[in-house]
């Protein structure tokens, strides 16, 4: 036990493991790149859909049920099916990357979508009525009242999606992509537990770092009147 901790510590603190093409830094960057691409694509799908569902109140049952169902999809299974279906149809790196993205986007859409429509849905009816009362159109109500009001929940949807993406992006290594998952898969194949444990710690650290960065972003973009800190005062 202590031995493992010590070996993991040595692995993590050995500069040789941080540098170079397969080093922790390079793999972290690759991990981040894949994760942010997935988050962006998921947000482009889920935020407009969530706003529409929240604003119009239509298809809410579908949004609720579908997001629930999508959450139950096993990522690993989807990855294999996608790889085996897409590999013969795509050339080069994309043949591995697209399946991984599909998995990560499918994972990230539900939290963002439910955060967005719940945020819009939770807009104070009095504020919405007032906005209409001063003559705002539906679009203006959405842009000037509902979206700013929904931002805290949209942001928390994005943050929870990003945590899941960073954790799950490790499985991309199974189909030969880079990222911190390499250390888990290669470490397991050669029984190098220090490398596996070190890789797992690196994934956790990266997830926390990114979450903190998004928390900062949230403080910047959310109206001060809505943040809980302001409410306490």
């Amino acid at each position: 036990m202590n031995q493992t901790v010590l070996m993991t510590w040595e692995w993590l603190t050995d500069p040789a493991n941080w540098q170079g093409r397969g080093g922790i830094l390079a793999q972290s960057l690759e991990h981040l790149r894949l994760s942010f691409v997935a988050l962006l694509v998921a947000a482009l799908i889920a935020v407009p859909t969530g706003l529409w569902v929240g604003h119009t109140g239509r298809l809410r049952w579908a949004a609720v049920n579908l997001t629930g169902a999508v959450r139950a999809i096993p990522s690993l299974g989807v990855l294999f099916v996608a790889v085996l279906l897409l590999l013969p149809r795509l050339r080069g790196e994309l043949a591995f990357e697209l399946p991984a993205l599909i998995v990560l986007v499918a994972l990230a859409v539900p939290p963002i979508l439910s955060g967005t429509y719940a945020g819009v849905d939770a807009t104070d009816p009095a504020a919405r009525d007032a906005a209409r009362g001063v003559g705002m159109t539906g679009g203006q109500v959405l842009r000037q009242v509902e979206i700013p009001g929904a931002l805290p929940l949209i942001m928390s949807g994005l943050r929870s999606a990003m945590l899941q993406i960073i954790g799950t992006a490790t499985i991309a290594a199974i189909v030969g992509l880079g990222g911190l998952g390499r250390f888990l898969i290669d470490g397991q194949a050669s029984r190098q537990y220090d490398q596996m444990a070190g890789g797992a710690i690196a994934v956790a650290a990266l997830a926390l770092l990114v979450d903190q960065a998004l928390a900062l972003l949230q403080r910047v973009v959310v109206s001060p009147g809505l943040s809980s800190a302001a409410r306490v005062r």
């Binding site: 590999l87 050339r91 043949a95 199974i174 189909v175 030969g176 898969i185 290669d186 194949a189």
Partner: peptide, 19 residues
């Protein structure tokens, strides 16, 4: 070196498709 951890089926596919 492309490390393919999902069994020889994946390796065969990758070879056949030129990855």
């Amino acid at each position: 070196f492309r490390s393919l951890a999902a069994g020889s089926n994946l390796t065969v596919q990758a070879l056949r498709n030129g990855q």
